[in-house]
């Protein structure tokens, strides 16, 4: 996994509460075989109407938000089905950070497995970010994981909280697999000890 240290990028708003994983990536796309390539289906039913025409009102369809890498949204982001395709779609679209007042558990965990930084801020702080994003075309944020701080070019600075275990996880670009592999010797020793059983010869 790519380490996450610092990200400076355009901010895109999705101004809704309870954005669920079905909305993030509808079930007809679960048959795909890649982990990548889900970005084109992100928020599918909000981006396109039944005839396949772009819905211009939806934020991600507006030119000013093209190429953004920081997503801001409202409470309970990522609720619903546990599909890992949801963080895959968000990452593949180009987002590296999601900021919201709260996240659904499984989605929150899945983000870390995929190198996405989900940041919980207070309702007021998120509201402030929405206002600044709307007011300033080309609004950018810098998210600094080493210092746990968010800044903009207008002098805003917000500090955020994150579990230390998870922070290290992202900073070092570790993944669960990498962590488990640190115990490779113990795994090999276990396999040697249980060789007969694993080889089905008892």
């Amino acid at each position: 996994m790519q380490p996450f240290i610092k990200e400076t990028g355009l901010v895109a708003p999705v101004d809704r509460v309870n954005v669920d994983t079905d909305a993030i990536i509808p079930k007809q796309f679960l048959k795909r075989i890649e982990r990548s390539g889900f970005g084109q289906f992100l928020f599918f039913e909000w981006r396109w109407d039944e005839k396949g025409n772009e819905i211009p009102e939806f934020s991600l369809n507006q030119p000013r938000y093209k190429g953004s890498s920081i997503l801001i949204s409202r409470a309970n982001f990522g609720c619903g089905s546990s599909r890992e395709h949801a963080p895959w779609a968000i990452l593949d679209y180009g987002f590296k950070v999601v900021i919201a007042p709260s996240f659904a558990d499984i989605f929150y965990n899945n983000c870390f497995k995929n190198g996405i930084l989900p940041i919980k801020l207070s309702e007021e702080q998120v509201e402030e970010l929405f206002q600044r994003t709307n007011a300033n075309e080309g609004y950018k944020l810098t998210v600094d994981l080493e210092n746990k701080a968010i800044t903009d070019e207008l002098g805003l600075r917000i500090e955020f909280d994150l579990d230390e275990h998870r922070r290290q996880f992202l900073l070092q670009g570790l993944d669960d697999i990498g962590l488990t592999l640190k115990h490779a010797d113990a795994i090999s020793a276990y396999e040697a000890k249980h060789q007969a059983r694993l080889a089905n010869s008892f």
Partner: peptide
């Protein structure tokens, strides 16, 4: 889940 499938494939743990 799928990440865990990968985890088990890679580490058997």
């Amino acid at each position: 889940g799928t990440s865990e499938v990968e985890h088990v494939l890679a580490t058997q743990c």
